[in-house]
């Protein structure tokens, strides 16, 4: 039982790290916080694996260490370190304080929604489930509110971590290969967004999403 509480607690920590990712000034800092967050996620996986006895989850934790704690942050640091748009500044549309407030609102809403779910498999981990859902929407909020397109890549990563946690909570017994597939997608998505971001920086000379609105109608 305490294992599940630990998992719920760690899930709360995810929200904190994701706020750090969103509010960080530089992409490399964000990448570092993202690695930290992924580490927390791995912790949750290990805890859940211990509690449920699902050997698949150990494997998930292992692949997550390789991909999310190491590979993706390193890739991001390499790709994004060189990109800079001084005119853009932080590219925030809303202040960090508002971000925190919004996160709280999203979290509360997700708790409300999850409390309505009656699935025996997740009865004990409802808080974690709520956090995973909230995390997903926080990532979405980051994409919608940030002007810096690199932050949007991080937004995508947050969404992905959220759905990954949901998957672990609800589908812990799923075959490993499935998890490998999802992780591979995530890596490729980051790589492709990184390359596109680099090309946009090179061609348009900006990282400002507000400049990417020429196609309309």
């Amino acid at each position: 039982m305490s294992g599940l509480q630990l998992a719920n607690g760690l899930a709360g920590l995810l929200i904190v790290t994701s706020l750090l990712v969103i509010t960080a000034k530089r992409p490399t800092t964000s990448a570092f916080f993202y690695a930290l967050q992924s580490l927390v996620l791995v912790g949750i996986f290990v805890t859940l694996a211990g509690v449920t006895g699902s050997h698949e989850l150990y494997l998930w934790a292992g692949t997550s260490v390789v991909t999310k704690v190491l590979l993706v942050p390193i890739l991001m640091t390499r790709l994004f370190g060189r990109l800079d748009d001084p005119k853009l500044g932080t590219g925030e549309r809303i202040s960090p304080a508002v971000s925190v407030l919004m996160a709280a609102v999203v979290l509360a809403l997700c708790f409300a929604v999850v409390s309505g779910v009656s699935l025996p498999a997740v009865a004990a981990t409802k808080p974690a489930l709520a956090v995973s859902l909230a995390h997903f929407f926080l990532g979405l909020a980051a994409i919608v509110t940030q002007r810096n397109i690199l932050k949007q890549v991080f937004g995508y990563c947050l969404m992905e971590n959220g759905s990954h946690l949901t998957l672990a909570l609800m589908a812990a017994k799923a075959p490993e290969l499935v998890e490998v597939g999802i992780a591979t997608d995530a890596i490729f998505a980051v790589v492709i967004l990184g390359v596109l971001g680099t090309q946009i920086h090179r061609t348009l000379g900006t990282l400002d999403a507000d400049q990417l609105t020429s196609l309309k109608g």
Partner: peptide, 15 residues
């Protein structure tokens, strides 16, 4: 325009 379209495509698609 093609880069802009590709960016939008990937972001909206993945979201």
């Amino acid at each position: 325009p093609s880069l802009e379209a590709a960016w939008k495509y990937v972001i909206i698609g993945t979201v």
